[in-house]
């Protein structure tokens, strides 16, 4: 089949960019989207032009390296899938596709469809971990973790750090990404000691990086290839507020939180339907 592409070309971070139209006449429906771009790039090189720069590595939806907007939708039309997992059979002959890079103050464009997402690393660095020395860990089964908590943690930990949530959010908010990590560590016993401080530090770092606020618009959840749910944002907010309202002393400002948090009540999630 024949595909027309309008791709954002930008030589470098400071260079101006523009859309350039290309045509790929012989696309097979079995190609992945990125393989279709490989074919285009091959042609461009043969014609002596510069290939379109786009990030990818695993090409199976797990590394989070790929990603751009296809016709205004992050990672393209296929739900719960990265663009590298999207195959051309989801498009039709003669279709025109506009490819645009993630856009956010915190994601400067490096070239064409490649952006710098190191801001997400710095959010993790600001508190997205459990402080545990190498070699100092207790016997693994000494800390029992309820299956439901483990499953919840896994659901949230599935985030691949692709940044599509930021790209799709009208406010360029990293709430879903941050909430996912806060939730992953927040539901596990291992994450409790640092839990109150963690959410506040991470959300403050996100603000410092220039990400916007969350207005519960929900586009992030819709485009998230890892199926992260909006509830992680509520949980993150809960932890942040909990830490702000915690009755703690200067010395150990947040230590008391898990027990005294006014938000404690909502941890229970009574009568919840588990899908």
């Amino acid at each position: 089949m024949r595909i027309v592409l309008e791709i954002w070309r930008q030589k470098g971070a400071s260079a101006p960019g523009r859309f350039v139209t290309y045509e790929v006449p012989d696309v097979s429906e079995h190609m992945s989207f990125l393989e279709m771009l490989d074919v285009l790039n091959r042609r461009l090189v043969e014609k002596g032009e510069e290939p379109v720069a786009f990030d990818s590595d695993c090409r199976e939806g797990i590394c989070g390296m790929c990603g751009f907007l296809v016709n205004g939708v992050a990672h393209g039309p296929l739900r719960h899938a990265t663009i590298c997992q999207t195959h051309m059979r989801h498009f039709h002959d003669g279709e025109t596709l506009r490819l645009e890079p993630w856009r956010a103050a915190a994601f400067p464009v490096l070239k064409d469809l490649c952006v710098d997402r190191s801001a997400l690393d710095r959010i993790i660095a600001s508190g997205g971990y459990v402080t545990i020395r190498t070699g100092s860990a207790p016997e693994a089964n000494a800390i029992l973790v309820p299956k439901r908590a483990a499953d919840r943690a896994m659901e949230a930990a599935a985030c691949i750090g692709c940044g599509a949530c930021v790209a799709a959010c009208p406010n360029a908010s990293a709430a879903l990404f941050t909430g996912a990590k806060v939730t992953h560590l927040g539901v596990l016993p291992q994450g409790q000691p640092e839990r109150p401080a963690r959410a506040l530090r991470m959300t403050e770092q996100a603000r410092a990086e220039g990400f916007g606020h969350c207005a519960s618009i929900g586009e992030c959840e819709a485009v998230c290839p890892a199926g992260i749910r909006l509830e992680v944002i509520a949980r993150m907010n809960r932890d942040v507020l909990g830490s702000l309202f915690a009755r703690g002393e200067e010395a150990e400002p947040f230590a008391a939180l898990p027990r005294t948090s006014p938000m404690r009540f909502f941890e229970a999630e009574p009568g919840e339907k588990v899908e």
Binding site: Y129, A137, G191
Partner: peptide
């Protein structure tokens, strides 16, 4: 080590 890190 990994369980202590919070690997689910």
């Amino acid at each position: 080590q990994c369980a202590a890190q919070g690997v689910p």
